[in-house]
């Protein structure tokens, strides 16, 4: 299975780069922490509101799963940007003339991004414990980690697709912002879906982020996992689709002169 070795080689490089940028690791944590502290404490009065939709905790406990997923979304959707640099500075060409399989490049990058996003989300999870968020069963963290790995793989796929098609940094960032923010806002990250106008809640129900947040929230607050299967199925479908498209688009576009 030489392709696994190739995926590992590409992944190894991405993770090496990540692990050497201690500053980058820390700086990426600041924004989610601000969300939890500022928004989490500002909206404490909404307690009755979220209780009315069946949530039995503080608002900060309501928002933390949303912010963990936010960290995962934005870390992974930004993660593909170095593909543009790699093409610009010839690194991709160097890889392309080696005997390595071409889809291994896209997959290796995606898995590395997903790994990095998961680490960042876990760090946020850890910080949220310090900030007073509780979990009934700490072993359930493993389940959350598994969901994060899978979910961020899907978003890293989106990032790779955009990075392959975009010819410039500007296009990349514009597209990523266009995709990232609505996906986050149209989910129950900050407020329950029940509070959305009904037509918007339909849109939100098409959003894979919605199911991920509901899953993580249920796990963290020990709610009945009524929609565990549905959530996992939707995430798996989402990941499969983006992986296939990313691998196809990357392999197609990377050959074009840059």
């Amino acid at each position: 299975m030489i392709i696994l070795y190739d995926i590992y080689s590409i992944m190894w490089r991405e993770i090496k780069r990540y692990s050497k940028s201690k500053f980058g690791i820390v700086i990426r944590l600041i924004q989610p922490v601000i969300w939890i502290i500022v928004v989490g404490h500002t909206f404490t009065q909404t307690g009755p509101l979220i209780a009315s939709v069946g949530f039995s905790g503080d608002y900060i406990e309501f928002i933390t799963p949303g912010i963990i997923v936010l960290t995962s979304i934005f870390t992974s959707i930004f993660g593909g940007v170095n593909t543009l640099w790699d093409r610009r500075y010839g690194f991709i060409n160097k890889v392309l003339i080696s005997p390595i399989s071409r889809s291994a490049i896209a997959l290796g990058k995606m898995i590395a991004i997903s790994f990095i996003a998961t680490i960042q989300s876990c760090l946020i999870l850890g910080i949220s414990f310090i900030l007073g968020v509780n979990m009934p069963h700490y072993l359930h963290m493993l389940l959350i980690i598994a969901i994060m790995i899978l979910f961020s793989l899907g978003f890293s796929g989106i990032s790779i697709i955009v990075a392959s098609i975009a010819r410039s940094q500007e296009t990349f960032w514009a597209t990523i912002n266009f995709l990232g923010m609505p996906l986050f806002m149209l989910s129950p990250a900050l407020f329950p879906l029940e509070l959305l106008p009904s037509w918007l809640s339909y849109v939100a129900k098409l959003n894979p982020v919605t199911y991920t947040i509901v899953l993580v929230r249920d796990i963290m607050n020990n709610q009945a996992h009524t929609n565990l299967e549905l959530g996992l199925t939707i995430i798996i479908i989402f990941v499969s689709i983006t992986t296939i498209i990313a691998s196809f688009v990357f392999t197609r576009d990377v050959k074009k002169p840059f």
Partner: peptide
């Protein structure tokens, strides 16, 4: 084959 491009393609962060 070995191919050394005009640009420097080594990874600076490694």
């Amino acid at each position: 084959i070995g191919y050394v491009q005009q640009e420097i393609t080594v990874d600076e962060y490694l």
